[in-house]
């Protein structure tokens, strides 16, 4: 119980800090909208191919916005040395990892919830798909933030911190992107679950494996 209490304290602290400035959420939101807009120009999305491009556009927007959120996540800890303050508390490192990770999932999910209706309108999709899309988004976001939180904690100690995170993270989370795009496409195309069950399993497996791995390795990243 105490362990859960501390995870929650870390999340609550991040949420309170974010609500005060709203810097991160607003920049993530605007950035993801811009990605969708740029795709519109770049691919000149015409009526007949909109639906086929939609899943890819959606996930690129999420990945880029998520990347922004992840890189902010530990920069905020590092700036005044509050990272050390966090590490000085008599709390298992894994609780700090889970707190930061769930906080990141929360922030990215909030952005997703805001952009999804806009996305549905722009791509002329059915509103009935929204709950299913949110489910896939949540699974994808967990996989993304699971490794992302670990790498973000490493990237802040490097010289090129914001630049390095995408270089490290994108290659590792490609299976998440592939599975998420496939599942999103399956929802839009009304495929039966059986047809994409392997992608669903892959996504869940990735989430579990890499969360467990990051959970173990976080301890080694957190030494000064």
């Amino acid at each position: 119980m105490r362990y859960l209490h501390k995870i929650f304290a870390v999340i609550a602290k991040d949420v309170v800090a974010e609500l005060r400035t709203r810097e991160m959420l607003s920049s993530m939101f605007v950035f993801s909208l811009l990605v969708i807009l740029i795709f519109n120009f770049a691919f000149d999305l015409r009526a007949e191919n909109q639906r086929t491009l939609a899943p890819g556009v959606l996930w690129v927007a999420i990945a880029f916005a998520g990347m922004l959120g992840l890189s902010r996540s530990f920069i905020m800890e590092k700036d005044r040395g509050s990272m050390e303050g966090l590490l000085l508390t008599p709390v298992d490192r894994s609780a700090i990892y889970l707190g930061k990770m769930l906080g990141n999932v929360l922030f990215i999910t909030v952005v997703e919830i805001i952009i999804l209706p806009i996305f549905v309108v722009l791509f002329n999709l059915s509103a009935a798909d929204i709950p299913w899309l949110l489910g896939v988004m949540l699974l994808g976001t967990i996989g993304f933030a699971g490794v992302g939180t670990l790498f973000s904690a490493m990237a802040i100690h490097t010289r090129a911190r914001e630049v390095l995170l995408p270089v490290l993270l994108f290659p590792v989370v490609i299976p998440v992107m592939l599975a998420a795009v496939k599942l999103t496409a399956a929802i839009l195309d009304r495929l039966a679950f059986d047809e994409v069950q392997n992608w669903f399993s892959l996504l869940v497996a990735f989430d579990l494996i890499f969360m467990a791995l990051a959970f173990i390795l976080f301890d080694y990243v957190m030494e000064e």
């Binding site: 590792v172 299976p175 592939l178």
Partner: peptide, 18 residues
């Protein structure tokens, strides 16, 4: 580097499955 090498290597089989 050790942490990254471990994560990177374990992502290879998952990539391969995909």
């Amino acid at each position: 580097a050790a942490v990254f090498a471990i994560v990177a290597f374990l992502s290879v089989p998952i990539n391969f499955m995909a």
